[in-house]
């Protein structure tokens, strides 16, 4: 039995100017599960995940139609503050993007902008978040060093720690491993799998094996349309659509 959906989209359309990037998407991401979004380049998977925390708001000329519900509430509704939404829905980007600040300040950023001043609470949250991102042991002696001194994989885990520090309910990953090496990728996949005990995770990936390894459910998008959505196991062994099968077996991509 599936848990209740944490995030649901209803007939979600998205436009960049006059170009439609998402077409009538109905996707439900179950709570405390990992949902993977796969599909060929340009299929709208990044656009989709960025609508979930309204990151596309800043894109000039963009437009959303349809509904996105989190815990049943419309995220574009009048009672929903976008800053509040992003406190509940954290995001990790394609390329590691730490701020040009110290490791500590990177993790503390989200707390500080949310008004946390207490030194003890900052220290405690920074440590807990870095531990949760499996980075603490590597950086505990150099928290004051600039984050740019870290390797790419470490930077990405720092970005995960930074997002976790805000204590979101949902974590969005937009191709988090596309810019880092295989060993670092394995670490991050482990993290994602552990994360589903506490968070609802949505991950965009162009790597099918990664989707198969980390996710419970998978959505396959093509040209902005949902082709198939279901349990990852079923989808990778017995897809119901011919297109899905062709894509998964590498006949196009």
């Amino acid at each position: 039995m599936d848990p209740r959906p944490k995030i649901e989209t209803r007939n979600l359309d998205f436009f960049y100017g006059s170009k439609q990037a998402l077409i009538k998407l109905n996707i439900a991401c179950p709570e405390k599960r990992v949902t993977a979004i796969i599909g060929p380049s340009g299929c709208g998977k990044s656009t989709f995940i960025r609508t979930l925390n309204r990151m596309n708001d800043v894109v000039a000329g963009s437009r959303v139609q349809g509904k996105i519900l989190i815990d049943g509430r419309d995220i574009h509704g009048s009672g929903m503050d976008v800053v509040d939404l992003r406190r509940r829905v954290g995001m990790v980007f394609q390329k590691p993007n730490p701020f040009p600040k110290s490791i500590y300040d990177n993790v503390a950023y989200g707390l500080r902008v949310n008004g946390v001043r207490s030194r003890d609470r900052l220290d405690e949250t920074v440590e807990r978040s870095l531990r949760a991102a499996a980075l603490w042991d590597e950086v505990k002696d150099r928290l004051r060093e600039n984050a740019f001194a870290l390797s790419g994989g470490q930077q990405q885990r720092l970005c995960i720690a930074r997002a976790l520090a805000v204590e979101p309910e949902v974590m969005l990953f937009d191709e988090p491993c596309s810019a880092i090496d295989p060993i670092a990728t394995a670490k991050i996949e482990n993290l994602i799998q552990r994360m589903k005990n506490d968070y609802t995770v949505v991950i965009v990936t162009h790597n099918m094996q990664q989707a198969a390894r980390v996710s419970d459910h998978t959505a396959f998008l093509m040209l902005g349309e949902l082709i198939e959505f279901g349990e990852t196991k079923t989808m990778f062994t017995a897809p119901s659509q011919k297109l899905t099968e062709d894509y998964i077996t590498g006949r196009f991509g």
């Binding site: 800053v83 406190r87 980007f93 950023y109 989200g110 902008v113």
Partner: peptide, 11 residues
């Protein structure tokens, strides 16, 4: 990417 990171952290 800096602004996006900040906005995504509820700044």
């Amino acid at each position: 990417v800096y602004s996006e990171a900040s906005l995504a952290l509820a700044g």
